[in-house]
C-alpha cells in the first residue's frame, strides 16, 4: 500500500536531491541559490513528515527567508562578476586534481553509506510518538530549561558574527586626503589596489 505519506517522502526527497545537484553544478550562482532553495523546501517537507513542525517552520523562515535572500543580495551586488569563472579559467592541473579528489571523496562516501546501511533488510521502523513530538512547546520547553546554557552561549556567537561581519565588510572606510601610499597599509582606493606589501615594498605580484 502506498499512501500519501510515501508520496510526500518521494516528492520531498527528489526535490531536495535535484536542488542539491543544481546548486553544485550550475554555472550561474543565482541558479545555484534557487537550487538551494528547493533543497531547503524539500527538507522542510521531510521535517513535517518526521513530526518536526517547529523545525520545518524555522527551516523555511531562517534558511529561505534569511540565508538564501542574503546569497541573492550578494549575487545581485556583484552582478556578472558573480559568475566567477569568466576570464579566469581554472588552471588545468588543479582542475584535474580537484576532479580526482572529488571523485575519490564520492567513492569513499558511497562505501561509507553502504556500510552504514549494511544491515540487510533490518530496517528501523518509526514507532509512535507523543502528539507534542516536535511541537513548539516541546522544543521550546527544552531550549529554556536544560538547553539554557547552550542558548546563552549562542548569544556570544551572534554578537561575534555581528561585530565581525560589520568590521570586515563595512565599505571604504573614509575618503582620505592622504594617498594610499601615505596611509601605508594598502587601502582599497578608487577601484584598484595601490598597495604596498607588509614590508613596505611595492607589490611584486598578485596583490592587485
Amino acid at each position: 500500500m502506498i499512501g500519501a505519506g510515501n508520496v510526500l517522502f518521494v516528492i520531498a526527497g527528489i526535490l531536495a536531491l535535484a536542488g542539491a545537484l543544481i546548486t553544485v553544478s550550475s554555472r550561474n550562482p543565482i541558479r545555484g541559490a534557487m537550487g538551494l532553495l528547493a533543497t531547503i523546501f524539500g527538507i522542510a517537507l521531510l521535517f513535517l513528515k518526521l513530526n518536526a513542525q517547529f523545525l520545518a517552520a524555522i527551516q523555511v523562515i531562517v534558511y529561505a527567508g534569511a540565508v538564501v535572500v542574503l546569497f541573492v543580495f550578494v549575487i545581485m551586488l556583484l552582478g556578472p562578476d558573480a559568475l566567477g569563472e569568466v576570464g579566469s579559467f581554472p588552471k588545468g592541473k588543479s582542475k584535474v586534481s580537484r576532479g580526482i579528489g572529488g571523485g575519490l571523496l564520492a567513492i569513499l562516501a558511497g562505501v561509507a553509506l553502504v556500510l552504514l546501511a549494511g544491515r540487510g533488510g533490518a530496517h528501523v521502523r518509526f514507532g509512535d510518538v507523543q502528539p507534542d513530538h516536535g511541537s513548539v512547546e516541546a522544543v521550546g520547553g527544552l531550549l529554556f530549561s536544560r538547553g539554557l546554557v547552550a542558548f546563552e552561549l549562542a548569544t556570544a556567537l551572534l554578537i561575534v558574527a555581528v561585530i565581525g561581519a560589520i568590521a570586515v565588510a563595512r565599505g571604504k572606510q573614509t575618503k582620505s586626503h592622504l594617498t594610499p601610499a601615505q596611509r601605508g597599509d594598502g587601502e582599497f582606493f578608487h577601484g584598484t589596489v595601490v598597495a604596498r606589501d607588509d614590508r613596505g615594498r611595492p607589490p611584486s605580484k598578485g596583490d592587485g
Binding site: I2, G13, A16, V24, K49, L113, A117
Partner: peptide, 23 residues
C-alpha cells in the same frame, strides 16, 4: 509502504545530500 517510514531512508538521503555538498 515502508518508503519514508524507516530511519534508513532518511539517513541515506542525508548522506547523499552531504556527499553532494562536500564534492
Amino acid at each position: 509502504a515502508l518508503l519514508g517510514n524507516v530511519l534508513e531512508h532518511y539517513v541515506m538521503l542525508a548522506g547523499v545530500l552531504f556527499t553532494i555538498g562536500a564534492v
